[in-house]
Nucleic acid binder design. Structure first.
Length: 632
RNA sequence: GGGGGCGUAGCUCAAUUGGUUAGAGCAUCGGAUUGUCGAUCCGAAGGUUGCGGGUUCGAUCCCCGUCGCCCUCGCCA
């Protein structure tokens, strides 16, 4: 059999091993534990791995040996002397090399629960490479170990089957992405990690410069500007599995450093990028999940997404869509509705199927939720129920005439037994509140079919929005996003109505990627800058290199970035991206295994011309608890 | 930065209204055991109840503070 690693690894130190009472012999792995099969019965082979479990019957001893591919049972027999003695001394997570004949298991001793359960290796030679201390938890255990323990001893955690599989799966995803991009003419090009600070958007990690005292690099939030420069440079198509950094609060689907599949293409329009990425996703699902996705994913305008689902990343696996009933509710005698519509706002509803059975307490909880998202209150109407068939119940029903009630019921598509929830407010509040309640209720009422893979492209995003705090116009995506051609004339007259050539890829209500066609004309770029209140001087200062590049021959170009961590999390149906990242950080940005971040030597600080100031009184520079939770 | 949950043996969890020496399973150690596979049986060892303070005759339990982890809102062009 061919060597797995393609080269022999010299690890044989006879003297050392003999001193430790180990078995002599030079053995090189020729098989992986999880890959031994019936067809190999009768062959001699050598396995390497970790002791997953041992069962000592006084005579025969069974040891399950595990490597990243799986588990194989090894049998130690008394007649093998010192090999047997070694075998019966093995404990969990000891590292061993075992050679012997692969045999068919006896009748009745077959274990159908593991793929190698029909065979076993009869140990003829064995080497104990390293005795393991008792591990904090067993990788094969059935109990759920708390996440901080897992993170602290990640090397043990990664031996657990689900984690090993996640990392192997992740490898296949990135491999396939590279292959696909290569087939489509992309070049993989690295971009700098030490980058220039561009204080738009997310907070950046800063890196002090020793050679330029007082100056700083920043870690890139994404390689955005570099990939555009690569297009100007004529590379035509660029891809990178790129690490990105953002110093913002963490969530279960957010890490301070994360990975994107970053793409950029020249001489393309929106449809080209969408088509290419759709093809990539279809390939991934076909080859890795054995699911055939439709040839094209639905396109939905941002406006339609907001009107129907209240969010710009709709989960279309269930209905319960938003319904604007302003025209009807504005005619009613219910002051809250009437006033909201009169003030230029709206009345929106969702119809909760079977929701009439919700208790008053549950509805009150929804109201609390609604207020959290900015609503002043939540109106509710029960259809049918105590009020009688075809009637409406609840505190506001009495303000609604029979005619209005009929129209409402018809518009919202409700039937007896349903619950109407209504928000009367500004349009944005209506979207937000009902969009969030829809998702919450969708989960709560089990309306979501977990087997669906509902992809869609959200397009025609607004290019700009008004910053609530400053009142200024701000770019929604980034200031290099091209507006739709037909909206260009309105850039100055009605900027908030200008739509962008931006697109997001959404899967089951999760944004897994986004991109845009960029501006490649100087004239358009300066109009955008003046709209955003960025002076020529400011623009030069912040983005000089990009503006220069645009002057010296920029092709039309556009691209996209896919969030690798989220994508793989969804493919594997994990609850957190930490389950698909080898060494993730905690919610407070610390690494429990390495204890990063940590204080540094005073000399390191002085080399960098840095001084630590403004720490809380108790925390003098360089002093903090060394081990979490230990109080040490 | 705000809100919430959790913190007891190496791990997963118990512990009556605040009451005697804080228990169990797994892991570890010793012994038995020749077909197990979450092996089984007998025995042993293992604890600053995250840390600090307070209330009390008495605190794992109640109160305050603090640290850590998770969820969530803000935040993430």
């Amino acid at each position: 059999m061919k060597s797995i690693f393609g080269r022999a690894v010299r690890v044989f130190y006879p003297g050392l091993w003999r001193d430790r009472g180990l078995i002599k012999g030079y053995m090189k792995r020729d098989s992986y534990c999880g890959q031994v099969t019936r067809e190999q019965i009768g062959k001699n082979m050598t396995l390497c791995g970790w002791v997953a479990s041992y069962r000592d019957h006084g005579g025969v001893v069974f040891v399950d040996v595990r490597d990243r591919t799986g588990i194989c049972q090894v049998v130690f027999r008394p007649e093998t002397g010192e090999v047997y003695d070694l075998g019966r001394g093995l404990r969990n997570e000891d590292v061993v090399i075992v050679s012997g004949e692969l045999v068919k298991r006896q009748e009745g001793a077959i274990n159908p629960r593991i793929s190698t359960g029909e065979v076993e290796l009869i140990a003829a030679r064995a080497t104990l490479c390293n005795k393991a201390d008792p591990v904090p938890f067993l990788p094969g255990g059935h109990e759920t170990v708390s996440e901080d323990i897992r993170l602290k001893h990640r090397y043990v955690d990664l031996r657990r089957r689900p984690m090993t599989e996640a990392l192997m799966f992740r490898h296949r995803v990135t491999k396939l992405m590279r292959d696909y991009c290569d087939e489509h003419g992309f070049l993989e090009i690295e971009t700098p990690i030490l980058y220039k600070s561009t204080p738009e958007g997310a907070r950046e990690f800063l890196v002090p410069s020793r050679l330029s005292p007082g100056d700083f690099y920043a870690l890139p939030q994404s390689p955005q500007l570099f990939k555009q420069v690569l297009m100007v440079a004529g590379m035509d198509r660029y891809m990178q599995i790129a690490r990105c950094f953002r110093d913002e609060a963490l969530r279960s689907d957010r890490q301070p450093e994360f990975t994107q599949l970053d793409l950029e293409m020249s001489f393309v329009d929106r449809e080209d990028v969408i088509g290419l990425v759709t093809g990539l996703i279809r390939r991934l699902w076909h080859e890795l999940l054995h699911v055939d996705l439709p040839e094209a994913f639905p396109l939905m305008s941002w406006r339609e997404a907001m009107d129907r689902f209240g969010v710009d990343k709709p989960d279309t696996r269930f209905a319960m869509e938003l319904c604007d009933v302003s025209a009807i509710a504005g005619q009613s005698e219910f002051g809250v509705f009437k006033d909201a519509v009169a003030a230029g706002g709206c009345v929106k509803t969702i119809c909760v199927p079977g929701g009439a059975t919700l208790s008053r307490k549950q509805i009150d909880e929804l109201t609390v939720e609604a207020k959290q998202f900015g609503a002043r209150g939540l109106a509710w109407i029960k259809l049918g129920g105590d009020a009688g068939a075809g009637q409406m119940g609840g505190p506001i029903a009495k303000f609604l005439s029979p005619a209005i009630q009929q129209q409402l019921r018809h518009a919202a598509g409700g039937a007896d037994g349903d619950l109407l929830l209504a928000v009367a407010d500004k349009q944005e509040v209506g979207w937000r509140v009902l969009g969030e309640l829809r998702l919450k209720l969708g989960h709560q009422l089990n309306l979501i079919n977990d087997n669906l893979w509902n992809f869609l492209w959200v397009i025609d995003f607004p290019g700009f929005e008004r910053d609530e705090a400053t009142g200024k116009i701000a770019a929604r995506h980034h200031p290099f996003t091209a507006p739709l051609d037909e909206d260009l004339p309105r850039l100055e007259s009605d900027p908030l109505a200008v739509r962008a050539k931006a697109y997001d890829l959404v899967l089951n209500g999760v944004e897994i990627g986004g991109g845009s066609i960029r501006i490649h004309q100087r004239e358009v770029q300066s109009r955008i800058f003046s709209l955003l209140g960025i002076s020529q001087a400011d623009a030069e200062k912040k983005f000089a290199f990009l503006l220069d590049a645009l002057r010296f021959g920029a092709p039309p170009h556009g691209g996209i970035a896919l969030g690798m961590d989220r994508l793989i999390m969804l493919m594997l149906r994990r609850q957190s991206i930490r389950e698909v990242i080898a060494f993730p950080k905690t919610q407070s940005g610390t690494d429990l295994m390495t204890q990063a971040p940590s204080p540094v030597e005073a000399s390191q600080l002085s080399d960098l011309h840095l001084a630590v100031v403004g720490l809380p009184a108790s925390g003098a520079a360089g002093i903090k608890p060394s081990v979490p939770g230990s109080g040490a």
